[in-house]
Amino acid sequence: MSRPMPDATIATAGEGVRDILPAMIACVPIAALFGALAVGKGLSIAEAGLMSILVFAGGAQFAALELWTYPVPVLALALSTLLINARHVLMGASLVPKVGGFSWLQRIAAAWCLTDEAWALAERRALGRQITPSYWFAVAGLLPLVWIAATFLGAWLGSFLGDPRRLGADFAFTALFIGLIAGLWRGRATGITIVASAAASALVYVVLGPPWHVAAGAAAGITAAACVAPSGRAAS
């Protein structure tokens, strides 16, 4: 087909919105929690909001709050952010074969709104078909907007929010990820990957503390998958 297909583009974007909607809802309490905790750490509402606008990486932002002191340890924060977000390199690389229709400009913009949630949903969709720009920018572009708005809301509400643990809001992130992982299940190899990653991550978290557990768990899971895979060119 050489003619543009606006109807199909809109339909694809609609599918992206439908796919990301649960994550958008789930991220409201998490972003609000981030905003409230940030203000509790001494950041202003503007600073908390600015971090969500410029960084919008939940894990790295929560880890930054763990490390946050005054004077602000800029290098430690940058290093922690690099370690936690190093997974983006692998995520972006794994998307490349699935976004063949993207121009370079679209790739630069696509990378800008790359998040765990959008990527996991795009990977799931890519099991069956190519990812189009209209799907990606719907599935990836909306989440940062919700994340930013809810951060400002949470920062503003601040101490009025009460103890977020009482509401279980701190567990929403974990539950969301479990749901995303279940969607990526592809048999025995996935199970081995999960067990290796979980064990290494939890162990390193206990022994060394954050943020090393992310890199350790990812490395263990990837290594385990490579070890159990049939070697050489016979593999499909």
């Binding site: 701190d170 567990f171 990653s197 939890a202 990812a218 998958a225 070890c227």
Partner: peptide, 29 residues
């Protein structure tokens, strides 16, 4: 990158490995 065999398996394992690593401390520790 052109991946096959073990490298392909390692690449395919990136999604679950990373997601699990992020939440394992909350879930297990």
């Amino acid at each position: 990158l052109v991946l096959r065999g073990r490298a392909k398996a390692a690449f395919d394992a990136i999604p679950p490995a990373v997601l699990v690593a992020v939440i394992a401390p909350t879930a297990l520790a």
